[in-house]
Design a protein around this nucleic acid. Structure first.
Length: 233
DNA sequence: CCAGACGTTGTT
DNA sequence: GTCTGG
DNA sequence: CCAGACGTTGTT
DNA sequence: GTCTGG
């Protein structure tokens, strides 16, 4: 699956690659984690790269906790939590690698999956807008009625579709993110039917990395450095 | 009809 | 063990 | 995904 | 909101 990824491609390269402009202060990410605001291209505004929160909260959810970070591509069209987003709210989740954890004999360790040249790609995503229930004020005996000011902020979230692994990822894991064919990105945003099959493993590689990746508060270039599997306990 | 769930992965 | 936060 | 918390009352 | 279970 995909629960952590990288996006350190410089913003000007992302802009030309995805034909969209970056409208925020872009910081390279070596350990993007669920719950964070991360760069995506949404269907309603495909000329912009903007940030949404990773972890889809359905429109009807009672609260904004516990968003869904992944959706199975095989069922995303039918599941109540995703069906409407799949039909009408798609996005490209920009990345240049993702992490998978695997136990190869001596404990669970992280690996980075990426293309040989670290080129950026789009993972298939769907997004949602959740608006907090507007509070009824003035009925609460102890409420002062003055603390709740303007309109509640809508929360925009996204989830990443998963599929079976290709030959490169298969030794690590039995699920992986859907990587769109570059040619399909526009069609995906457009609501058309595109291939959500596993990307070919051609030109992809896995690299063992430091278990410093485990802690989401670590986010620095050294994280993608190859780690010696044997030396690292 | 209303009530209650609505997700994935992995692990057992 | 299970939930929440990042 | 992993890391870290996981509780209450009352007092400062 | 929409689907499933009772």
């Amino acid at each position: 699956m995909c629960g952590r990824y990288t996006l350190f491609t410089p913003p000007d390269e992302l802009e030309s690659r995805f034909d969209a402009t970056v409208g925020f202060e872009f910081e390279p990410r070596y350990n993007a984690a669920p719950g964070q605001q991360l760069p995506v291209v949404v269907d309603t505004d495909p000329g912009r790269i903007q940030r949404l929160e990773w972890g889809l909260v359905p429109r009807w959810a009672d609260d904004d906790s516990g968003g869904h970070i992944n959706a199975r591509s095989e069922t995303v069209a039918e599941k109540p939590a995703f069906a409407e987003a799949y039909q009408r709210r798609r996005c490209l989740v920009l990345a240049d690698g993702f992490y998978e954890w695997a136990d190869r004999g001596d404990g669970k360790r992280p690996y980075r999956v990426a293309f040989d040249d670290d080129r950026p790609f789009a993972m298939a995503g769907v997004w949602e807008r959740w608006t907090p229930e507007t509070q009824q004020v003035g009925l609460d005996a102890f409420g002062d009625g003055a603390t709740d000011g303007g309109d509640p902020e809508p929360l925009e979230t996204f989830t990443i579709l998963t599929t079976e692994p290709n030959g490169v990822v298969e030794p690590l894991h039995h699920r992986m993110a859907v990587i769109l064919n570059a040619d399909d990105e526009g069609a995906w945003l457009n609501g058309d039917s595109v291939s959500l099959s596993p990307a070919s493993g051609d030109n992809m590689r896995i690299t063992p990395v430091s278990s410093a990746v485990n802690d989401p508060s670590n986010d620095r270039p050294g994280l993608i450095k190859p780690a010696d599997t044997d030396r690292q306990r």
